[in-house]
């Protein structure tokens, strides 16, 4: 009897020590999660129902921010439209491009690791202000992009970032250019596909195109699914490119939702309004993610489902 209780208490103390060590190790993450994610998250819920200019105390106004957004704000709908346009253009293109490069890099060669690094670089640098500024220069009327077109014999004098039709494309192009992380994930997925499948198909006389559509693509659908979700969420939150390259212009053609949210919050001193906008964006992203999840039953293939 006494033996068991001693055993239990020793077990408990060991367990407590283990727990402590565990908390110690996740401490840094836990702290950052609380300070930079959970608390801001909760305060933004509260703030979305307040009028708050940051310089004086917030005032509770119920759902007025949400009502104003839907009834009075002309740029709310406009910025949502721009964001949808951006997401529907940029995400499929980025995924296709990432897959294309991954397919090219998926072979035995000593240079592949080097290429992987090189192609991943834009993703690391791309979010920075300096690169956005550089991008701005590239798409000027006398920028690198037009110079290259002229060198190819295509005379072009469009100022891409200030033309109402092309401005959104300069952002899309910059977004596609940062294809590194989906590319690496595709590459990992491609390596997982057993070579024997391809070999068997080849024996049966299947060409490379047929093998891509009948083997590679179906086997890759879980990866495509994952990339689609992650990229879509990132796409809805696009901000820095629009902020620096086009400043939302010309004529609000590139006023993406996150940029308008930022302006309301920091330029017009309406933190509460901005918080309300943020929650609407979360709802929209949530709906789209759910839709993609639902649709996955019809197009995502898991090998372990075969019975």
């Amino acid at each position: 009897m006494s033996d068991t209780s001693a055993g239990v208490s020793r077990y408990r103390s060991v367990k407590r020590r283990d727990n402590l060590a565990g908390y110690f190790f996740i401490g840094p993450w836990l702290f950052c999660f609380l300070a930079f994610t959970l608390i801001p998250l909760i305060s933004s819920v509260v703030l979305s129902m307040m009028e708050y200019n940051m310089l004086s105390d917030p005032v509770f106004i119920g759902f007025k921010n949400f009502v104003d957004l839907f009834t009075e704000d002309q740029l709310f709908g406009k910025s949502l439209g721009v964001t949808f346009e951006f997401v529907f253009l940029a995400i499929p293109l980025r995924l296709m491009f990432a897959l294309l490069v991954a397919l090219i890099l998926n072979r035995e060669s000593k240079a592949v690791p080097l290429y992987r690094v090189v192609y991943y670089l834009p993703s690391i640098l791309g979010g920075s202000v300096a690169v956005a500024v550089m991008w701005r220069y590239c798409f000027n009327r006398d920028g690198v992009f037009n110079t290259a077109l002229r060198a190819l014999g295509i005379p072009c004098s469009i100022s891409w970032i200030s033309n109402t039709d092309t401005a959104i494309w300069s952002l899309v192009l910059m977004f596609i250019w940062q294809f590194g992380s989906p590319m690496l994930i595709f590459l990992a997925g491609l390596k997982q596909i057993p070579k024997s499948y391809h070999e068997a198909a080849e024996c049966d006389g299947a060409g490379s195109v047929k093998r891509f559509f009948k083997i590679t693509l179906p086997m890759l659908t879980p990866i495509i699914f994952f990339n689609l979700i992650m990229q879509m969420i990132g796409g809805f939150m696009v901000f820095s490119q629009a902020m620096i390259v086009t400043e939302g212009g010309p004529l609000n053609r590139t006023l993406v939702y996150a940029l308008y949210l930022y302006r309301q919050s920091f330029t017009y001193y309406r933190m509460g309004y901005g918080s309300a906008m943020a929650w609407i964006l979360i709802a929209i992203v949530g709906v789209f993610t759910a839709l993609v999840f639902k649709s996955s039953n019809y197009w995502v293939f898991y090998e372990n489902e075969i019975r």
Binding site: N140, I158, S159, N163, G249
Partner: peptide, 13 residues
């Protein structure tokens, strides 16, 4: 052309 003028970001442009 407003398209050209709007793209200026620096003094030199």
């Amino acid at each position: 052309d407003p398209e050209v003028q709007l793209a200026w970001a620096t003094t030199e442009e």
